[in-house]
Each structure stands twice: as structure tokens, then as C-alpha cells.
Design a protein around this nucleic acid. Structure first.
Lengths: 72, 72
DNA sequence: ATGGAATCGGGTAATTGGGGTT
DNA sequence: GCTGTCCCAATTACCCGATTCC
């Protein structure tokens, strides 16, 4: 059944400005990331982006290529 | 002929506040979407908007990037 | 009937997106 | 190729008070 929501938890969303602050870049840059598909987002009917928080948090956590643990 | 009574289920409805939370926008913005026809809604006798959940869910599902396939 | 929360409507500031450039 | 900045138009956010919802 195509029940996208109603029983499902709504996705956490960030605004472009929030993401920009988190990454310490210009909001414009975040917009580019969305346009180039480097960040998943949905659009308001007005055309403004809402970025999936999970994607952002994952990137911030550095989940890409975890550095090798170094022994003491 | 399409039956409009008896077997028809009532449409799932969202309040403006619910839609606002889902999209991370101001409830006022949702009202604007309804007034500009970007979102279908019906009105309570008192004039409050009730948005069709299907429209919202569809818009909410419009991600810019499909979820990355896992297992590779 | 009462009360708290939500919605509406108008007006104004802030944010956002797009194009072009550095 | 990636990012930051300027200009401009559109979209969105916040202020107020009155009405509606439950």
C-alpha cells in the first residue's frame, strides 16, 4: 500500500541555512549540493529546499572512509 | 458509474500545522499554498483548511536523489 | 459555558534561488 | 570543478488581533 506517511515517522529536515551553518559554508553552496545531487532534499511547493537531516548528520559524522584506528 | 456514497472512504486530512511540521515551514505558509492552489484542501464550515493527505505525501516523497542501494 | 490551542488575515522583515562573475 | 559574492525577484517567517476548533 502506498502509504508514505500516516503511520511512518516524518523525515527530519534541515533548511539550507541550517546545513550551511553546520558545514560552515555559504547557504549558496548548500543549494549547489542539492542541485548536483550531492545531498538529498525535497522541495516546498514554492521551490525552497528542505534537506534530509539524516544525510547531513551522516556526512558530519564522517561516515565516508572511516580513518584507521591508531593504537596508543 | 462512480459511486459517491456508501462505499466511499473519507479522504485522509491534515491540518495546516501538521503539514507545516512535515515541511519545516510556517503554518501560514501552508495556508498560502492552499490559497494559491498548490495544495488541495477543503474547508471547515468555520473556514479552516484541511489539506488532502495524499497531496502532501506525494510532495513529501519527491526527493531529489533516490536512496542509495545497499549491499554493494 | 469555559479555556487552551490552532487558524485566519494583513503587513513587513528575512531567507532563498538563479544567473553571472571571481 | 568548487566556493564566495553581487543583484534581483519570489518565497517564506514573524508580528498583531479576532475567530474557530475541540
Amino acid at each position: 500500500m502506498p502509504e508514505t506517511h500516516g503511520t511512518a515517522r516524518p523525515p527530519r529536515l534541515y533548511t539550507t541555512t541550517e546545513v550551511a551553518r553546520l558545514f560552515r559554508v555559504d547557504p549558496k553552496t548548500v543549494t549547489r549540493w542539492v542541485r548536483t545531487g550531492q545531498l538529498r532534499a525535497l522541495r516546498t511547493p514554492g521551490g525552497h529546499a528542505r534537506i534530509l537531516a539524516d544525510d547531513v548528520d551522516a556526512a558530519l559524522a564522517g561516515l565516508t572512509q572511516p580513518p584507521p584506528a591508531r593504537g596508543g
